[in-house]
Amino acid sequence: MKKIIASVLFVAMSFTGFSQIKTPQPSPTSKIEQMVGLTNMTLEYSRPSMRGRVIFGDLVPYNKLWRLGANANTKISFNTDVTIGDSKVKAGEYAVFATPGKDSWEVVFYSDTSNWGTPQKWDDSKVVAKAKAEVYKMPVKIETFTMTFDDLTNNSAILGILWEDVYVGVKIDVPTESIVSASIEKTMNGPGAGDYYSAAVYYLQEGKDINQAKEWIDKSIEMAGDKAPFWQLRQQSLIYAKAGDKKGAIAAAKKSLSGAEAAGNADYVKMNKDSLKEWGAM
């Protein structure tokens, strides 16, 4: 009897010892943070690998809800409201699931993020958005399941999903324009030189009312006076050029060039000289 008890204790101690050994996760977790316009997106998911297996149509069946990765829910969060497909999605955290098909996937954003894998009981009322994503075949195979934020603009990003030889992408639109417009409207009640400058440059970059941009950049430079920095004068020259005022653009570029040379900034010296040559002033 003593021998049996001793053997049991030895086995128990052996298992206890092994449980303290650290080994790599077969599907390691990943966390990505991405700023899209003025919206912060955070993605958390687990990353299984192929390991010689056929993935889509086998390990991951077609036309069946998939957890989109491994282990706990894949989760995505937004700090502003966003638009996915035709759905407005409130700021918050959501689980992401997918139903893969040969030619397209359905990607679902779900308000309950507490599940391990897919929910035991699906609740349609918790679906906040659905998006159809076309399947693109890749010329190489991706060994490890990968999610990305692709094709970033001020107003949108593509949530990319890659594994085996498949890529699908879901567009997420963000409300940058409305946030900036509201900020501009609020700030213009008592703006400073920096506020006028930021608003003018935004209008230039987004192809908005260039005459309004010109008015704002002029106010910014006027308020700064002799202390207007060369990089702001550079933007003034570009706005004038876009507005069709070549004479004003050349004058601003010459001031920017002078300031850049005094500051020893070779990049701005070159950019201003290139623009002056383009506008026939050098």
Rank of each mutant, 00 (worst) to 15 (best):
Glu215Met: 14
Gln212Pro: 02
Lys130Cys: 08
Asp151Lys: 14
Ala260Trp: 06
Lys90Tyr: 05
Met50Gly: 00
Thr29Cys: 06
Arg234Val: 03
Asn63Asp: 10
Lys208Glu: 14
Ile221Leu: 13
Thr113Tyr: 10
Ser258Tyr: 04
Ala12Phe: 15
Gln212Val: 14
Phe18Cys: 14
Gly160Thr: 01
Ser258Asp: 04
Lys137Tyr: 05
Pro139Gln: 01
Glu222Gly: 06
Asp267Glu: 09
Asn115Gln: 03
Ala157Val: 15
Thr16Met: 03
Lys137Phe: 03
Pro229Cys: 05
Gly37Phe: 07
Thr16Asn: 04
Met1Lys: 13
Val170Ser: 13
Val170Trp: 13
Lys171Val: 01
Met35Leu: 12
Met35His: 08
Lys3Ser: 14
Thr153His: 11
Gly280Met: 00
Leu276Ile: 07
Lys126Asp: 09
Tyr94Ile: 12
Ala91Phe: 10
Thr74Asp: 02
Thr83Leu: 13
Lys255Cys: 09
Ile250Asp: 03
Ala262Tyr: 04
Gln25Leu: 11
Lys130Ile: 07
Glu44Ile: 11
Phe97Asn: 04
Ser237Asn: 04
Asn211Asp: 02
Lys246Met: 03
Asp81Asn: 09
Gly57His: 05
Ala263Asn: 09
Ala70Gln: 05
Glu206Phe: 10
Met50Glu: 04
Glu222His: 12
Trp122His: 12
Met41Ile: 15
Ile55Met: 11
Met147Tyr: 14
Leu9Val: 15
Ile210Glu: 05
Lys3Phe: 08
Asp245Ser: 01
Lys246Ser: 06
Gly101Pro: 03
Ser87Trp: 06
Tyr110Leu: 02
Asp245Leu: 02
Glu106Phe: 02
Pro28Phe: 15
Ala243Ile: 01
Gln236Leu: 00
Trp163Leu: 06
Phe145Gln: 06
Met35Val: 14
Val168Met: 04
Gly52Asn: 11
Ala251Trp: 04
Ser46Glu: 08
Asp81Trp: 01
Trp116Leu: 00
Ala228Gly: 11
Ser111Phe: 12
Met223Cys: 06
Ser7Thr: 14
Leu257Cys: 05
Tyr62Pro: 00
Asn154Lys: 11
Ala182Ile: 03
Ile179His: 10
Met188Arg: 07
Lys227Leu: 13
Trp116Lys: 02
Ser104Phe: 05
Gly280Lys: 00
Asp103Pro: 05
Lys121His: 09
Asp103Gln: 09
Pro61Gln: 01
Gly37Glu: 11
Ala262Asp: 12
Gln205Ala: 11
Phe78Leu: 09
Gly225Ser: 13
Ile179Phe: 14
Leu276Ser: 08
Arg47Leu: 13
Arg67Cys: 01
Gly169Ala: 07
Ala91His: 10
Tyr268Cys: 00
Asp245Asn: 04
Tyr136Met: 12
Asp150Met: 05
Met1Phe: 13
Ser19Asp: 15
Gly207Cys: 11
Ala95His: 08
Ser27Thr: 15
Asp150Pro: 13
Ala98Thr: 05
Tyr203Leu: 10
